[in-house]
Deep mutational scan, measured.
Amino acid sequence: MADQLTEEQIAEFKEAFSLFDKDGDGTITTKELGTVMRSLGQNPTEAELQDMINEVDADGNGTIDFPEFLTMMARKMKDTDSEEEIREAFRVFDKDGNGYISAAELRHVMTNLGEKLTDEEVDEMIREADIDGDGQVNYEEFVQMMTAK
């Protein structure tokens, strides 16, 4: 299944994987998964984290390695993001709930994920998604960005 991913997608997933893999040992533990999910405003229980890991832990060693992570991402993409997942993601970014993602809100979430971005990089990300040019990202623009192939 992971063989249907483009090189660009694999590179993006590698970057995402390293955000989860806090200690850089090449595997994601339940603790690391929990840290990232909490930084995104989720509050999973230990059991939920274990279930999430077990779902993709092909070799049964209790952690997720990069090939397992790729399989999980490929699977998720095949079920292409349901509207509800996209709306949920939008809410994570839209901290003040005004229906727009500002540069400050984007920077806040990315920083929580451990991504240190310059102001230019954040502005560039907003510009790429900002179709109507108002300097922020509304829900429609967010959907376009998330579903762009």
Rank of each mutant, 00 (worst) to 15 (best):
D96L: 02
E48R: 06
D51S: 10
N43P: 08
D123S: 11
K116C: 10
F93C: 03
E85F: 02
F17T: 00
K31Q: 12
V56K: 15
F69N: 02
N98L: 07
D94Y: 07
D96Y: 04
V137M: 15
Q9I: 08
F93A: 06
E120Q: 02
M125Q: 04
E140T: 05
R38E: 14
D132S: 15
L70D: 01
D130I: 01
T29L: 04
I64N: 10
K95E: 11
K14L: 00
D94C: 10
L113Q: 01
A148K: 07
T80E: 10
E105C: 07
G41P: 05
T118M: 10
G99R: 10
D132G: 13
M72G: 00
D79N: 10
N61K: 08
Q136T: 08
M1Q: 08
L117D: 01
K95P: 01
M52C: 08
M72P: 07
K149I: 09
Q42P: 08
P67G: 03
M52F: 01
M125K: 01
F13N: 00
L5Q: 09
F13D: 15
R87T: 06
A16I: 14
M125A: 07
G133K: 09
D23C: 01
A129I: 00
A103W: 01
A58D: 10
T63H: 03
Q50I: 14
A129P: 13
G62Y: 01
A74L: 04
G26M: 09
E68Y: 05
L106T: 03
E46Q: 13
D25A: 14
A104N: 02
I131E: 00
D123H: 04
D59T: 15
V143M: 14
G133Y: 15
K149Y: 14
V36D: 10
D94H: 10
T71H: 06
G34E: 11
G24V: 12
K95V: 03
E141M: 05
K95A: 00
F17E: 04
D94M: 02
T6E: 08
E115Q: 07
F90Q: 08
Q42D: 01
F20N: 03
Q50Y: 15
D25T: 07
E46S: 03
N43F: 15
E68W: 07
E68N: 10
E120L: 10
G114H: 10
N98F: 11
Y139C: 10
F66H: 04
E7G: 13
K116P: 14
M73K: 14
S18W: 09
E83L: 11
M110K: 06
A2H: 04
D21P: 15
T6I: 13
E124V: 12
E83S: 00
I64K: 01
M72R: 08
V137N: 07
I10W: 12
Q4E: 02
L49D: 04
N54S: 10
K95Y: 03
G135W: 02
K22W: 01
E121G: 10
G26E: 03
M146V: 13
L113A: 02
V143G: 08
S18R: 14
F20C: 13
K31W: 10
V143F: 02
E32A: 14
L117P: 09
A11M: 03
D57A: 08
M110T: 11
D81M: 06
G99E: 01
Q50E: 12
E46M: 15
M77V: 12
N54C: 03
N61L: 03
K116I: 13
L40E: 02
E7T: 02
G135I: 03
Q42W: 04
A148H: 07
L5T: 14
L113R: 01
A129W: 04
A16C: 02
F66T: 01
D79I: 06
R87V: 15
A148C: 05
Q4I: 08
G41C: 09
Q50K: 13
E46Y: 01
D96R: 02
D134L: 03
L49A: 14
I126Y: 11
A16F: 06
E140A: 12
M110E: 02
G135S: 14
A129M: 09
A103I: 10
A2K: 03
G34I: 02
Q42T: 04
E46V: 11
M145L: 06
D123V: 07
M73P: 06
D81A: 14
L40H: 15
S82Y: 03
D57G: 12
Q4R: 12
F13A: 06
L49I: 08
I64S: 10
E83R: 00
I101K: 00
L117I: 12
E83A: 08
M1C: 07
G34V: 04
F93E: 06
E12G: 11
T30Y: 04
A148Q: 15
D94P: 01
D134I: 02
D23S: 00
Q136Y: 02
I86M: 00
F17L: 12
Q136R: 13
R38L: 06
M1Y: 07
E84Y: 09
K14N: 09
T27A: 13
A11R: 01
S102K: 01
M146L: 09
E85L: 05
G24I: 15
K14I: 00
T30I: 13
D81T: 09
N112F: 01
T63F: 05
D21A: 03
K76T: 08
S82L: 12
V56I: 05
E121L: 00
E8S: 09
N112L: 08
P44M: 01
K22A: 14
F20E: 03
N43D: 11
M1I: 09
Q136W: 01
G114S: 00
D59C: 15
P67D: 07
F66N: 04
M145D: 09
D134V: 07
E105N: 09
N138P: 15
E83K: 11
E124N: 12
N112M: 07
L106E: 06
I64W: 05
R91G: 02
D94E: 03
V122R: 04
T118R: 09
M110F: 00
D65C: 15
T63R: 10
D96H: 05
K14V: 01
